[in-house]
Design a protein around this nucleic acid. Structure first.
Lengths: 212, 212
DNA sequence: TAGATTGTTAATCGATTAACAATC
DNA sequence: TAGATTGTTAATCGATTAACAATC
């Protein structure tokens, strides 16, 4: 079993490196060293080297570092950004519309092509269509969409999830803050903003406490 | 130095327990066992017990488990939800407006009271005000706001961040996907959706690969 | 050459899990 | 009582960091 040869921790850091390298490229840099990346990203240089050695098709050069352009391509390939995946948003509330209108996901391999809701209030958001749920199944099948983003209220999350699975969606990015269950032919990633907030609040409380 | 006696991993799981327990309470349950929580949340029962033993003011009862109401209060207190902190959003684009209009943060100790933008397009969102940036400083000082949420485009993130720090904000929740630097009298939590997406895409690719 | 940098092996650290006694 | 459950100590696992040889 060689599933998941690369650790989740490493995979999670890849988009960060990519972002950094794209900026470096824009700034006209040809090479960057692991120690510079480490300093700017506030992580350890050894970790950077270890991560990059996993994805880089060409080893870094002593004295120079890594070639920016090549490394960008290697990471994009590693993350599968070379073929953009189409996704749909279900739930056209505030968050759903924000996602539909946000073009930045294109930089991370994701192409959101439509949103769905039981009640359509706006027919398009920044030129992208919002459809009623009745059209969901046929749309997903026609466009061979494999990835769905759930932004509905908690109460309907499981129902919506079942609908996605039924239509053939295989990966679900869940922003409804509730646990959803799926068959093991489908993968789910729950985004828990409350967890992130808890860490921030905790740090803030410690900080303010220390000053007293 | 007893800063951070509780691990980040444990803190991150707390909002999840809280959510679960609130649901259990709504469902009329008086007690829940660690093994039931573990099963429903898909984590290990020992981990649940270890986490809960840290926050629970009363030990769990053998044969019964934990008292739902008491545990909810203990977690809320641990996470500091007993005194809601006021926050402001800077950047009233799609995401900023979504946050401003989302009432769910109230359940996680956060009260977003206003948004700011250089250009105000809507004066209110679901009854909450959007102000021009000129009013930022005075508003933050007047309302003693300590927490700021950055939802501006990447290019202006550092500038906005400096403005927040200048006004006296001490905790920053950063959704602009770029690194920002702050003095060490301020804490920052970067939310990196691209990292979460990378994990999902990776799992999805593995899944689809295996079927071939 | 000397020195900066890479890549790898071993050591450390931290978090999760296993084992099991204590309790009601 | 017997049995389900808690809480804790020790073992394991995985990820990060330290040390250092190899390279240009």
């Amino acid at each position: 079993m060689e599933k998941n040869a690369v650790s989740n921790a490493t995979i999670s850091r890849m988009p960060g490196y990519l972002r950094y390298l794209r900026d470096a490229k824009l700034a006209g840099k040809g090479y960057v060293s692991s120690s510079l990346i480490a300093k700017d990203m506030a992580i350890s240089a050894v970790l950077v080297r270890k991560d990059l050695s996993i994805v880089s098709s060409v080893p870094g050069k002593p004295r120079y570092g890594f070639e920016v352009g090549g490394l960008i391509r290697d990471i994009e390939k590693f993350l599968g950004y070379d073929n953009l995946s189409s996704a749909v948003v279900v739930g056209a509330g505030g968050l759903g519309k924000a996602f539909l209108g946000y073009e930045g996901f294109q930089n991370y391999g994701l192409n959101i092509i439509a949103a769905f809701d039981i009640r359509v209030t706006d027919e398009t958001v920044r030129g992208k269509p919002v459809y009623p749920m009745e059209k969901f199944d046929s749309f997903v099948k026609e466009h061979k969409v494999k990835l769905g983003i759930i932004t509905v209220p908690k109460a309907s999350a499981q129902l919506v999830c079942d609908k996605l699975v039924g239509a053939g969606i295989r990966g679900i990015w869940n922003f409804a803050n509730t646990q959803i269950s799926v068959p093991d032919t489908v993968v789910v990633k729950n985004v828990d903003l409350a967890a992130s907030l808890a860490l921030l609040s905790g740090d803030l409380a410690n900080l303010l406490q220390q000053e007293k």
